Amino acid sequence: MDTTAAPASDLFPPLERASPDAPGDDELLALLALVDAGGATASRRALLEATGSAAAALALGPLGWREARLTDAQQARLRRPDAARLDAHRAWLDTPGRRLVGWCDPDYPPQLKRSPSPPLALFVVGEPARLWHPTVAVIGSRAATPAGRENAARFADAFARAGFAVGSGLAAGIDAAAHRAALDRGALTIAVLGTGPDVAYPPGNRDLHARIATEGVLVSEHPPGTGPRREHFPSRNRILAGLSLGVVVIEAAERSGALITARLAAEAGREVFALPGSIHNPLARGCHRLIRDGATLVETHSEVTAALANPALELASNLRGRLATPIQHHGVAGLSSSAAARPEGLEGSVWDAIGDDPVGIDTLALRTGLTPAALSSMLLAMELDGRIVTQHGRYYRVR
């Protein structure tokens, strides 16, 4: 029996890389094959950690896969990959602004990596470095009351003004209200999907899905074309919890996906907050249950941002390590800021390129000669420092 696997490049015809910062074609194909193998992720993550790359993991062949405790079904999928399916995924990723961020990718969000059962890889629409941004998840019922939607929008707008990204699951009700409020503020919103990154669900959120794809970040562990499946939404919730520093539950029934997300957030060591409500509102019972179980009762957004100040500083330190530049200050409201000072080194060149007028990342790339991915990481660090702000995809100096 042949116990070796053909390199990923032998399975498909050559394809140009989507961008200078995208993984090489052989690595991308190998990672897609590992994702497509399906099943539990723990053994595949361990395989990647042991080998250091998806291409090396694929090259081990059946003997190595068996030693890594991949199931028979996973090994069968790796031996006989669905070439047409993987080629379609690769073609989707060839469009600028789309990335597959694998477990070994330096852009894999560190806070997600430290959470229980993190995904093997993330399909991302938008800049992956923005997933490092300090994020507050705002979640709740799909059948929210008007007051609940107003509270979601009010809290999300306040978090955006304080410098946090707003995360949610792009569901109807509370999720949609939170996403829209962040977008209307010109701030970052991150939507974690239970479908493929190209599938808008529910269909009524199609326009919101498209807007987030342009102005925020869409993220999913499922390949393009994956439709809604009941079992995908609880697993979606663990990613949202893992990406966030804290979770705010606005309205929730006693049995709801929001409570699952809150439980997963607590298990991941994240802060859980809940808004109290009327004893006559069935959508307040889930929040009251969370409070009885130890969640923090909150009435204002400042109670949340104050509690998350230290985790936000830790995340900024992680980003500085990623960029190999010294940690200075942090731009989240309530923390110290070095607003108007020109940074040194390469960030100083980016500061000069921004100039006095708002500018988009494509123009900055032309002015600096840097790739959009490299620029995005530096811009995020400068935003965390409080030196710049971003609104509607354009960057401004803080004066």
Rank of each mutant, 00 (worst) to 15 (best):
L11S: 02
L11A: 12
L11Y: 06
F12Y: 11
F12P: 03
F12Q: 10
F12M: 14
F12I: 11
P13I: 00
P13R: 11
P13C: 01
P13W: 01
P14Y: 04
P14Q: 01
P14V: 04
P14G: 02
P14N: 09
P14K: 00
P14F: 01
L15V: 12
L15F: 00
L15Q: 14
E16S: 14
E16H: 12
E16F: 10
E16A: 15
R17M: 13
R17L: 11
R17W: 07
R17H: 09
R17P: 07
A18Y: 08
A18F: 00
A18G: 01
S19P: 01
S19K: 06
S19T: 12
S19F: 03
S19L: 06
D21Q: 12
D21C: 08
D21K: 04
D21G: 03
A22C: 07
A22G: 02
A22Q: 09
A22N: 05
A22P: 04
A22T: 12
P23Q: 06
P23V: 05
P23A: 03
P23E: 06
G24V: 10
G24N: 11
G24E: 14
G24K: 09
D25I: 11
D25W: 03
D25Q: 13
D25E: 14
D26R: 11
D26W: 06
D26F: 05
E27N: 02
E27K: 08
L28D: 05
L28M: 11
L29T: 15
L29S: 15
L29E: 04
L29M: 14
L29N: 14
L29C: 15
L29W: 13
A30M: 02
A30E: 10
A30H: 07
A30I: 07
A30S: 14
L31A: 07
L31F: 03
L31V: 00
L31R: 00
L32R: 06
L32W: 04
L32F: 06
L32Q: 05
A33H: 01
A33M: 09
L34C: 00
L34H: 04
L34D: 03
V35T: 01
V35L: 13
V35R: 05
V35C: 13
V35E: 09
D36Y: 01
D36N: 12
D36I: 01
D36R: 02
D36Q: 09
A37P: 06
A37R: 07
A37Q: 08
G38A: 09
G38W: 01
G38E: 05
G38P: 02
G39A: 09
G39N: 05
G39C: 02
A40G: 13
A40L: 13
A40K: 14
A40V: 13
T41Y: 04
T41Q: 14
T41P: 09
T41I: 10
A42Y: 10
A42F: 11
A42D: 14
A42W: 10
S43N: 15
S43K: 13
S43C: 12
S43F: 10
S43G: 09
S43A: 15
S43E: 15
S43P: 05
R44M: 12
R44V: 14
R44N: 07
R44P: 01
R44F: 00
R44Y: 06
R44S: 13
R44A: 14
R45S: 03
R45T: 11
R45I: 15
